[in-house]
Amino acid sequence: MEICIIDDDRVYQLLMKRLIHRVDESIVIKTFYNGEDAFNYYKNHPCKCQIMLLDINMPKMDGWEFLENINIEDFKDSCIYLATSSIDYSDQEKAKKFDKVKGYLTKPITKEKIKEITEAY
């Protein structure tokens, strides 16, 4: 299984790597520091990840822009989750408008949550 993390928060990325590996050490983790880097990568590479954790507020290209720009066909085998520290209600409402978004996760993301979404896949 492969999980992709797109987030500009370095500490969060480190945390997630540790938590995910505590759930299942075999999971491959791919990280990007902003939406643009991820977008450029997946333009040229097929997406092999089953789960994508996408942050909303990032420099260069934020989570919304990433969702607007990608071709859904390229991600048909992936579950995209918005993972954000925002508790802004309007963000949650906006997330519902994107069919590609499977769920909205509020940080901090716990081990139990990771178990839940990996098992759901």
């Binding site: 938590l19 520290s85 508790i87 802004d88």
Partner: peptide, 25 residues
């Protein structure tokens, strides 16, 4: 203010919560 709290302070506190959870384990 609510933007800062929601998007910025929250990201730090959620990191602290996450870190503490791992430190325990």
């Amino acid at each position: 203010f609510s933007y800062i709290v929601s998007h910025n302070l929250r990201s730090h506190t959620s990191n602290i919560q996450g870190l503490i959870e791992i430190i325990r384990e």
